[in-house]
Amino acid sequence: MDSENHSITLPEIYRFLAQSMHYPDPEWMNADFIQFLNAFLQELHWTDEADTLNTALKSSDNFLEDIQIEHTRLFINAVPHVAAPPYASVYFKGDGTLYGNIAEKTKQFYREKGFYLSKEDDLPDHIVYELEFLALLENTDKTGAQEFLEDLFRPWFTLFYSKVTKEARHPYYRVMMKLIDFFTREEL
């Protein structure tokens, strides 16, 4: 990076994106977060996205619960079906089930780069882990981060992105998908 005037780095952006895909908890999904997201979108000149989010926010009695319900429906269990499980192996090289060989490969990749999951209550190819990993690797091994993006992240994320965009009923996840796509795709 050659710019001297920025104080938010790509690793930080990855961490922010990872955070945004956690189950919405009032600990972090609060006014500060929404304000930050709004500013972020404004800086990107994504005014349409910012407006949609603000409209949703204003028209809702319980914005947090809306997103919680949406998160549950899209990513955990839902009606009419688990819309878009946030795991690579559901989309890429396998039977659409969890812990396919792509998840194993992903875990191996983390290891090769010297990282281990601190607790294994979720699968290695969950989007939150992958984004957090990118944040870490971006600091120390930009080439590695690029490899990860190309070989392990983008091939499934593009499918996940379109699935979420199609299934989402709340603008929040559509916007987040667009942001993740923006910061992980090959050319900006």
Partner: peptide, 17 residues
């Protein structure tokens, strides 16, 4: 930060490594 978007642009260099 003066411009986040501007700061993010150099990412292109990173991702084309």
């Amino acid at each position: 930060t003066a411009s986040l978007a501007a700061a993010s642009v150099p990412l292109a260099k990173v991702v084309s490594a």
